[in-house]
C-alpha cells in the first residue's frame, strides 16, 4: 500500500479512516472491557474459555496503564481535553501519558505545535494543570 509509507503519528498521518474514527484512552478501554467481561461471565460459567488472548492481554495492559480509575474522572478528562481543539488521536495520547510539563507534552504530541494552530505554551500549560487537578481530586 502506498499510504503506509507515509504513516507517521507524530505528524498525525494515521490514515483517513483512523483520523475519523473515535480514539479511546486506556482508561476508557478498561471500562468497556470490564463491562464486556461481566457480560460474558453472566452468559457462561467459565468465561476464560471464550476470551481471546488479544482480549486478555489488552485488559491487563489497560488496567496497568490507566491513569484514571473511576468513571466520572474519565469523563471529565475527555471533556476538558476536548475544549482545546485537539484531534482525537492527540487527545488520547495526552490522556494516556499525562505529561507534566509543556516540553514533555510537545515531545509526546509534536503535532500540537505544528500547522499554525492556536496552541500557545500558556494554553498547553493550562490544559496540563487541569488534567493534574482531576488526578488529584479523583
Amino acid at each position: 500500500m502506498s499510504g503506509e509509507e507515509e504513516e507517521n503519528a507524530a505528524e498525525l498521518k494515521i490514515g483517513e479512516e483512523f483520523l475519523r474514527a473515535k480514539c479511546l484512552m486506556n482508561c476508557e478501554v478498561a471500562l468497556i472491557l470490564d463491562r464486556k467481561y461481566e457480560q460474558l461471565q453472566q452468559l457462561s460459567d467459565d468465561p476464560t474459555n471464550q476470551i481471546s488472548q488479544v482480549f486478555e492481554k489488552s485488559m491487563q495492559y489497560v488496567k496497568r496503564f490507566s491513569r484514571y480509575k473511576n468513571q466520572d474522572a474519565v469523563r471529565q478528562v475527555r471533556e476538558i481535553l476536548s475544549r482545546y481543539q485537539l484531534a482525537e488521536f492527540e487527545l488520547c495520547v495526552l490522556g494516556n501519558l499525562c505529561p507534566e510539563t509543556v516540553e514533555e507534552a510537545i515531545a509526546m504530541v509534536p503535532s500540537i505545535k505544528r500547522k499554525g494552530r492556536i496552541h500557545e505554551d500558556d494554553a498547553i500549560e493550562k490544559m496540563l494543570n487541569d488534567l493534574s487537578l482531576i488526578k488529584k481530586f479523583e
Binding site: 504513516e7 503519528a9 507524530a10 498521518k13 483512523f18
Partner: peptide, 15 residues
C-alpha cells in the same frame, strides 16, 4: 469494535 492499532511515530507505554 474496539481495535488496537499501533502507528509509526506513536509514543506509548509498555511492559
Amino acid at each position: 469494535c474496539v481495535a488496537f492499532r499501533p502507528f509509526k511515530g506513536e509514543i506509548l507505554e509498555a511492559v
